[in-house]
Simulated assay, not measured.
Amino acid sequence: MFETVDFLLPGEAQDDSLVYSLLRCRPSSGGPSRFGKSTPISLVFVHGIGTHKETWLPVIEHLFEIQAASPQPGASIIVEAWIIDFPNHGQAGIINEDHFLRHPEAFGSYQGGRMLRTFLGSGLVMPHTNIIIVGHSCGTLVTVLSTIGYSPQDLPYSRIILVEPAMMSNSVFAKIDVEPIPVIALMELTKARKDIWPSRAAAHEWLRTHSPWKGWHPRSLELFVEHGLRDLPTAKYPHLTEGGVTLSCTREQESFCYSGLQDCVDALERLRELCTLIPIDCIFGNIATVISHKMQQGVFDVCRDKPNASTTVLDGAGHLIVQEDPHRLATTIWASMNKQKEETFRSRL
């Protein structure tokens, strides 16, 4: 269905020259020339906290399946999809482990935004394509904050799609001490999370019976066991030399990533500006697990009455829709891309 290639990209000196890990997916059935005058699209996907870049693969697989089943002349066609690890997650977390052991506070959403800008300036993205970026959870903060530094007419994205955006208004932020949001409890739970198993098979068996993994699509769980875990020993556990596996993103790193609550406020304010500049699609589940209804309301308020912005609420979906229902999410993302096509067609009439 598609071919994948791994890339390693050196980061900027101001971010301690961390190494960024990327995966490029391209349809094996041909490039842009196959689709004539179709608009070529490069998709970029940004994952959430505690996962890894490959968590997006089931979504990408289904997007390519939808595309192969319904190519339309003049439609926007995906010619490639890029996924990138946070530098303390997945393969990147393994590569950068010594750095984060010394500097556990070294990654936040603003640094993630600079990571995306480094990637966009690397020349890796296929030339002459429109870039659509899709972020999930904390990845939505990284996505939105990556637009800082560009002038309004030079924004790198033709559309931004935000899945369960982890943003909040100033009013919600101001009341956290008396009205805690779910992510506060998640930050504490992460610190005590089980993180050592005797084998990948044992880890798979344990994860499939415990939350949140027990609700995941089987393919998503398999990918987590493959890429979200790593072999022992590690820099954190150098004494565990008898085998087994642990988390690629350590508990300490995951917990720290949840602490950047001011970034949630800053991203919402940046989103307010972006809604007047480029198309924005926000996708929520109606089951408020991590992103509370009050947090969702802040995004709804920002998007309301903005011609470039839309919000979609999926019944029966929760915060981890990427892992729980990747096919349904892919269908929703495809609809957003078709909406772009329809808007472009109308603008040309």
Rank of each mutant, 00 (worst) to 15 (best):
V5L: 05
F7I: 02
L9A: 04
P10G: 04
Y20R: 01
L23Y: 02
T51Q: 08
T51Y: 15
E54N: 09
T55Q: 14
L57A: 13
A69D: 13
A69H: 13
G74Q: 10
G74M: 10
A75N: 11
I78Q: 10
V79W: 00
I83P: 03
A92D: 00
G93Y: 07
I94Q: 09
I94G: 06
H103R: 12
E105S: 12
S109N: 04
Q111M: 09
R114C: 04
M115C: 10
R117F: 01
R117L: 04
F119E: 02
S122V: 00
G123R: 05
L124F: 03
V125Q: 01
V125I: 03
V125D: 01
G135M: 00
S137T: 00
V144I: 03
G149Y: 01
L162T: 02
V163R: 01
E164G: 01
D177I: 08
P182V: 06
I184R: 03
L189D: 14
K191C: 05
A192Y: 08
A192L: 10
R193H: 09
K194L: 09
I196K: 09
W197M: 03
P198D: 07
P198T: 12
R200F: 10
A201C: 11
P218Y: 09
R219Y: 11
L223S: 04
H227W: 12
G228M: 05
L229Y: 04
E242R: 15
E242I: 13
L247T: 07
C257H: 13
Y258A: 10
S259M: 11
V265E: 10
D266S: 13
E269R: 12
R270G: 11
R272C: 12
L274R: 07
L277I: 14
L277E: 14
C282F: 10
C282N: 14
G285S: 09
N286I: 12
I287C: 07
I287Y: 08
Q297E: 11
F300L: 14
A309R: 05
T312P: 07
L314D: 05
G318L: 04
A330T: 01
T331A: 11
W334M: 02
A335G: 15
M337L: 09
